[in-house]
Design a protein around this nucleic acid. Sequence first.
DNA 1: TATATCCGAAACTGTGTAGTTCCGTATATA
DNA 2: TATATACGGAACTACACAGTTTCGGATATA
Lengths: 221, 221
Amino acid sequence: MELVAMTQLDVTPVTDAPVKLGRKRDHSRDPEIMDAALDVLAETGYDGMTIDMVAARAKAGKATVYRRWSSKADLVIDAVACMKKGANDLDNLPDTGTLRGDLIGMIKPHAIHDNGRKLQIMAGVAAMVARSPELADAVNDAIVEPRAAVNRVLMRRAIDRGEIPADADIETLSLIGPSMTAYRTLVQRKPVDREFLISMIDTILLPALGLRPPADAAADA
Amino acid sequence: MELVAMTQLDVTPVTDAPVKLGRKRDHSRDPEIMDAALDVLAETGYDGMTIDMVAARAKAGKATVYRRWSSKADLVIDAVACMKKGANDLDNLPDTGTLRGDLIGMIKPHAIHDNGRKLQIMAGVAAMVARSPELADAVNDAIVEPRAAVNRVLMRRAIDRGEIPADADIETLSLIGPSMTAYRTLVQRKPVDREFLISMIDTILLPALGLRPPADAAADA
DNA sequence: TATATCCGAAACTGTGTAGTTCCGTATATA
DNA sequence: TATATACGGAACTACACAGTTTCGGATATA
């Protein structure tokens, strides 16, 4: 008898595959919330940012935020990580035939603005990065690495066409731009404009590679 | 009549110069408290730092801290500013006869450690700097400016002895070191060791100035 | 030695925010 | 059209920390 009962219980499906009705979770508000989080992060920094600010800016309820992310730290890590999607496409870089032309071709108002925002966000999470390896990795993948990657590609092409020495230390040289723009924004708090970027290319990067900027370099400014 | 009364009042000393007894305020604990504040700042960042932590580390009472500084922000600004006193003395810099020798002479374990601590503090206040001009100025005077100033002096001497071109852009070039070490510490979170600093000098700074590192450069590592 | 004052410690207050809960409404599915 | 569910909004709890107050003990001065 007991055996029969047990068998029946075992045969009965554990879950009844109930009919699903009503609205489905579609995560459609996630981008707005993450975008709002990045804005607040850039403006007030990690500790200054409150979930209420983020929810208000995304016109969402606080509960909606917590339905998707279990904590403020989770939201920030996710928001920073999702910036990677908007990063530069390495297959559609300028190709002018010279390293200088390619580097200057990267200087567009849109790119300058994006980099500024990324650096503001960097400043906002700088203190946190030291204590959260997860956040540190997200920042590295979404902000740090993409910047250097572009320079590496452009320099590698310059090597391929024989414009610069094959043994140039691309790893180090590709960090000059990211380093100096970060320093100028975060530490010196001076604007990173077209003029500064061109002067950096012509005064440091090209000379370090043994190249001379053209005599009419001023025409680019 | 009024005049007489007024005269009497004026003649009477405003304060009675009372006899002072007891212990005098000597601010003798200020250095310990500011030092503790800098330590906590480097470890936890501005928002993570609490006055209790600072007081405990300085073996002082919280009330003692508030007797001297009216707020947490005040203490941090003062502590950062007082770092300037420990900054490099521009009159006692290495003088080896070559720019490379002078630059490498600056690389001492003590200096590497100090710079690391300063950069940790920078990271801790990075988010705050954007919203407090007072703190921004303190950081600039105590951390940012002294670093570049050393390089400027060494390069100017190199110009004077005809080692590098007189029209070299010292202002920009003197920022290569500070920028790249800051980036490496704060963003990449890699160690700034002797090897990295020498490679930066030989790969970027000297080539950008038209100099070649000696063939036996590896001997310095 | 007497005393005025500072000190460290600890208790206390007020505020701000992370995270939760609840509710009336909107909406996609059946 | 009916309904289950997610949504925005607001109220709520728990807690951590800035800043204040209090107090017994230490200490320099007279």
